[in-house]
Computed example of a mutant assay.
Amino acid sequence: MKKLILASSSPRRAELLKQIGLNFEIRVGCVDEPLLPGLSPPELVECLAERKAAAVARDLNDGIVIAADTVVVWQGQVLGKPLNGEEAFDMLSRLQGSAHEVLTGVALIDARSGKVLVEHEKTRVFFRAMEDEEIGRYVASGEPLDKAGSYGVQGLAAIFIKRLEGCYTNVVGLPLARLAQMLKVFGYKVL
């Protein structure tokens, strides 16, 4: 079976791959992640995921490289990772009491053949109304600072989420059902 390479330093993505029993190594390439003007949110996450995968695959002779990029979209506005606590507070203030979408682009590249497959997953997330004090305490926890949209569904922010429509692991950062189907295209069966 081909080896798998996760092109991500995200501990959450690594944990998700371990959860489904995959053996993999981690390699991270140097990729700038600017918000590219003119791209729709699905195009954006697919483009960035493919860039991440390509940055790692070009240095390999073998293996399937897996990369992902996740953003939060609220009222048509893309929310990436906050730069600081103030920006995190602002993002969470906008998300509270409303629905938003989480999009993750997933890219696979077979380093030997150069075959590329890029797709995305979308999940709708509904936040309950939140008080400014709650948001402030959550931001002070430090949890929001390295996450798209300033929250982690698998952490403290779970208390803010009323419901999800779609894939839970997509909101964590890697849609496992989609990934398993994509890996099949490369001849790699998860089960």
Rank of each mutant, 00 (worst) to 15 (best):
A88T: 11
Q154L: 06
N170Q: 08
E131A: 12
R58Q: 15
E165D: 15
G80A: 08
V78S: 03
F126Q: 06
R163C: 04
T70Q: 05
E50P: 00
G63Q: 09
R128S: 13
R27K: 15
A140S: 13
K184S: 13
G136H: 09
F127H: 03
G136S: 14
G80I: 06
R51S: 12
P37C: 04
V125D: 03
T104G: 01
R51A: 15
T70V: 05
K3G: 10
E25M: 05
A140W: 08
G149C: 13
S141C: 14
G97A: 12
A129V: 12
A107G: 05
P175G: 01
E33H: 09
H100C: 12
S8T: 10
E50W: 06
L44W: 02
V153T: 07
K184F: 12
R178W: 01
S141P: 15
M182L: 15
P175C: 01
G63M: 09
T123H: 04
C47A: 15
L4P: 01
F160W: 08
A67V: 10
Y188G: 03
F127Y: 15
E165M: 11
G136F: 04
I161F: 08
K147D: 10
W74M: 08
L145T: 08
Y188R: 03
R51L: 14
L22Q: 01
D146R: 01
R27M: 15
Q75C: 05
L16T: 01
I20Y: 13
I66R: 02
I109Y: 04
T169R: 01
M130R: 11
A88S: 14
G149W: 05
S98A: 15
I20L: 12
G155Y: 02
S150D: 07
V125G: 07
L35V: 14
L39I: 07
V31T: 14
V185D: 11
A111T: 09
R51W: 02
E33N: 14
I5E: 04
E101T: 14
V73K: 00
A49R: 04
S9F: 02
A55W: 08
